[in-house]
């Protein structure tokens, strides 16, 4: 006799379908968010142009991370061979790449 209990695979396949649908939806949602943010992005690009800005204001704790692209030339461990980075954000920045 067949049991009336649903097969275990039914809820999991439903979950799988839901998960895949939501994953695909994130692509559509990101496009929607991008559209909504387009005006802000255009305004920010204008601000960058007007003020001739060169860097993101992501790290403001030291001048060499506030203006990453404008920093002095420096070498890693230039202060002392064992010198550790002063600022945590400095550890997120890669050393400058050597020219070929």
């Amino acid at each position: 006799m067949r049991s009336s209990k649903p097969r275990p695979s039914t809820p999991w396949l439903f979950f799988l379908l839901l998960g895949i649908s939501f994953t695909l939806l994130t692509f559509a949602d990101s496009l929607r968010l991008r559209d909504a943010m387009q005006a802000d992005l255009t305004a920010n690009r204008q601000l960058v142009r007007d003020l001739a800005l060169t860097d993101l204001a992501l790290f403001t704790d030291a001048r060499y991370v506030r203006h990453l692209s404008q920093q002095d030339n420096y070498a890693a461990f230039q202060d002392h061979p064992m010198a550790l980075e002063h600022f945590p954000s400095g550890s997120l920045i890669m050393p400058p790449q050597l020219s070929p």
Binding site: F27, S30, A57, L58, F59, T60, S89, G90, L92
Partner: peptide
């Protein structure tokens, strides 16, 4: 907290969503 480091001024920003397939 990781990105803020010791910065007192940390911007409140919404990221421009990009998903790289």
């Amino acid at each position: 907290p990781v990105l803020k480091g010791w910065a007192t001024l940390y911007p409140d920003f919404r990221l421009y969503p990009v998903i790289d397939a």
